[in-house]
Amino acid sequence: MQQSFEGKATPMTVITPMRPRWRPLVWAILAVFRHLKLGVVKELAFIHFARWLLVKRGRLPHLSPRQPVERLDDDWFVFTTNFNGPWDQYIDAFGMVGGVRGGLDWLWWTSRGFPGAWPMRPFKRYIRYFEYPLDLYCNAYPGASVRDIACALELSSRLDAFLAATPPDEDAAAFARRWCAFLDAVAPTLGDTGAQLQEIPSPHSKVPLELRS
């Protein structure tokens, strides 16, 4: 599967089969996770968001009467996320950051064949196997990453505050003094943003070579 969506964000959807008898347990786990403060995901600043869903075997979309009704053995556990940067780095972060690894073990524990979030290679192979190819992906701001947006929001609020605090009759020296202080304050947020579309997509940034074939 080669995906070449333009822009800085990469979508990932992983759908794993799960025995229906685990349903109550999975609901319970998801309910617990919904109420946890997942600060660690925020700290992993390349993750936009991550979401897990349980789709019951009888609730798969039935789009027309002509679509045959399927009788499936398994429920489906859906994981969907968006992130910046390479696939490899993203999955590495899952496996290597202790807190995330424990959480993933809980979430995927009920999925068939889940080898655990560690060691890395079987875990990556599992994700890769159940990763679903996407035909369509809408990205409203292809030139922005999560970090870009966080920086831009901070810059714009500080700029608004600076402008609001600027008296119309301020003399040049006073303005210069305040301007330099403002520049110092916002310096960490001044990275250039926007699309560099021809620069970002690359085969290996999506999938590690050893897993492609």
Binding site: G85, Q89, T189, Q196, S202, P208
Partner: peptide, 25 residues
């Protein structure tokens, strides 16, 4: 691994700034 090490450093950290909060710089 050229892809995981040299190329990763070159592509993600030297020729892109996202991980260092530097945008595209």
């Amino acid at each position: 691994s050229f892809a995981g090490q040299f190329e990763f450093v070159t592509q993600q950290w030297l020729n892109f700034g996202n991980d260092q909060n530097q945008g595209n710089d």
